[in-house]
């Protein structure tokens, strides 16, 4: 079976996203496909830093997209904030189901299966180390770090998505980076 996939990640400007959302809420298949294509990589990156096993990351990302389709007609407010909340709920359900929250082991089940370890490219930090560091943060701190540095949003956008003030997000960001720095220094 061959799917005709775009080779590049689909990006939508805010106005375009709103237009697609409007069509998706009427359950128009093309709009839902476009929305899924737009959301999938974002949700994948978000879940990647919450879950250890690459196969689980893919399964859970698929589950988020399905939930999106099932509930898109009732969705109101910030779509981006909503989709990350859905993703967060799916991750919580996943850990509830598996009962024991797995300890993130950088060597376990190969994060490198998805992307190469960055040590070879001369970076100061690799994905496994960041994943490990993130597991020591509070849920809110982790959320802010992922949205800001993995997803690339601005502080104001994150505040809007998390329904917090800019100051609250800055405070969370400051504490998260300080804690991460300490954790990564200790490990070295």
């Amino acid at each position: 079976m061959r799917l005709y996939m775009r080779e590049k990640v689909l990006e939508l400007a805010e106005e375009e996203l709103q237009a697609v959302l409007e069509q998706a809420r009427r359950l128009e298949p093309k709009a839902i496909a476009k929305l899924s294509e737009y959301c999938y990589p974002k949700v994948f990156r978000y879940i990647f830093y919450h879950v250890n096993n690459p196969a689980d990351v893919e399964d859970l990302t698929g589950e988020v997209c399905l939930r999106m389709v099932q509930s898109i007609q009732q969705q109101k407010g910030s779509f981006k904030g909503w989709i990350y909340r859905v993703a967060s709920n799916v991750v919580t359900d996943f850990y509830r189901r598996s009962a024991v929250r797995q300890v993130v082991d950088p060597a376990a089940d190969s994060v490198e299966d998805i992307v190469d370890d960055t040590d070879e490219t001369g970076h100061l930090l690799n994905q496994a180390q960041l994943k490990e560091g993130l597991s020591h943060l509070t849920d809110e701190q982790r959320e802010v770090i992922i949205l800001k540095f993995i997803e690339g949003y601005e502080t104001e956008e994150i505040a809007h998505m998390l329904e917090k003030s800019n100051e609250a997000v800055r405070a969370l960001q400051f504490r998260a980076i300080t804690t991460l720095k300490k954790i990564l220094q200790t490990e070295k």
């Binding site: 990640v9 999938y40 990589p41 994948f44 990156r45 990647f48 893919e58 990302t61 998805i114 992307v115 190469d116 960055t118 490219t121 970076h123 100061l124 930090l125 690799n126 994905q127 960041l130 770090i145 540095f149 993995i150």
Partner: peptide, 11 residues
């Protein structure tokens, strides 16, 4: 360092 990390992409 975080900003320079390669972004995980789905298959």
């Amino acid at each position: 360092a975080m900003e320079q990390l390669p972004k995980p992409e789905p298959s």
